[in-house]
Simulated assay, not measured.
Amino acid sequence: MADLRAKALEHTATARQIAEKAQAEGRNFTASEKAAYDDAMTTAKRHADALRTMRDDDDVTAQAKALAAQIADPTGSTTSGGLQGRIGLSGKSGRELGRTLAKTMVPEGKKELAPTGTVVTAASLLPEIQELGHPSNRLLEILPTFISATPTFEALVQRVRENNAAPVAEGELKPTSVLGLEKIEARLEVIAHLSEPVPHYWLADNRSLEAFVNNELIRGLYDAAEAQVLTGDGTRPNLHGILTTSGLQVQAFTDNVARSVRAAITKLETAGHEDNHVIVLRPEDWEAAETARADGSGVLEAVANVTERATRSLWGVPVVVSTALPVGTGLVMDREEVSVHWDGQVAVRWSEVGDDFERNHTRARVESRFECVVADPTGVARVATAATP
């Protein structure tokens, strides 16, 4: 119990720190902060529910023991005589005794699910759900995020740039440079999904299950949003993804992943994007970059030693690992040139659909609205992480 309480307090403290930081700065949550806040609160609730379940189980056990003692000897004496004789002394029929036991086995505040007179034994689901692992998609945590007050909005993007600045003789016309600004109309698109039908009794018997389902669906929502930010083709209801934006710089594969990425950084710097870089790679490409060794010496080329793995940086630039990227593709970009817009909320609702009521099922729906804007395509380089066959 102490361990569950400590975990609940730890995640609650994390959520409070995020909220207090945003409040102190007089702003709303960013997308990454909202995701971290939701995750911390959901996890804290799950641990708290598990703690309450254990306490309720202890209360039920204590009540059952007390009732068993009362059944064995309602007068408080230690005289033997067996259960049958004691029932006669208490004046309770078998049905009345069963009803008393059934009521005792149901924790206070929970609906008595068993028919009157039925004895319910404790065979509850484990409070801690044994969940699968999650890919570490975290691009949304580092991109600038803006909350849109309306589902449609306008944005200025720069598609081309032509610098014609030059010396000018007195009285001559000055050259005109092309800034390439274009006003676009963007629209938030809905990303959503439902849970499978969940039996009502599962939710009644395990207080952690609702939080678990919510958490899984929210994670899935952000994974889908990240995939759309990277690869959406712009055809409604898809987002305008980074990789499908026209005008991106392209870096062909060189000797290995690490050197291909380095060449892409040079292209960004040449175009005037000298800092705020971020690298996005698939897990297998990050492994290849991290373990690449220089010819001849065999020394690790991209990192000083293997113990620096946790920093996830390449050529001094932070690396984000995402399974949403197409195979053989990486990205190097100026993070200030790519922004994510959303409606500022993740809606979670439980309801019955179709014949769920007749089947005693319910399910959850999670949704939000997003869009991606690439302000300057020259600030993004698409990198080939493998030689073309």
Rank of each mutant, 00 (worst) to 15 (best):
E371A: 09
L243Y: 15
D356H: 07
S124K: 04
R161E: 14
A302S: 14
Q70L: 11
V340T: 03
A347C: 08
G94N: 00
S80F: 13
E141V: 04
T254A: 13
L97K: 13
V120E: 12
A68F: 02
T78R: 07
Y201S: 11
D355N: 00
S313W: 05
Q63N: 10
T291Y: 10
A48H: 04
W286E: 15
L188P: 03
H273L: 10
G241N: 04
L239F: 06
E287D: 13
T266R: 15
D285Q: 14
E185K: 12
A204F: 04
R349Y: 04
K92F: 13
E367Y: 03
A155H: 00
V119C: 03
S136Q: 08
R335T: 02
K92W: 07
G26D: 13
P74S: 07
D334P: 04
N305F: 08
E25Y: 05
K103F: 06
L268G: 11
N276R: 15
M54D: 13
I218Q: 09
Y37V: 06
R349C: 05
A169H: 10
T116Y: 00
E352N: 08
D58P: 13
G330H: 05
I87L: 15
A211W: 06
L248E: 09
L300S: 04
D57H: 05
E141Y: 15
V190N: 05
R219Q: 02
V257K: 11
S297M: 01
L217A: 11
S246H: 08
K110V: 12
D73K: 13
Q84N: 12
E33I: 04
T311R: 00
S177H: 09
V380R: 12
V120W: 14
V346R: 05
A288W: 08
S208W: 00
E274K: 15
L97P: 05
N206P: 01
S297Q: 05
G330L: 02
T14P: 04
E337M: 15
T100F: 01
S260G: 06
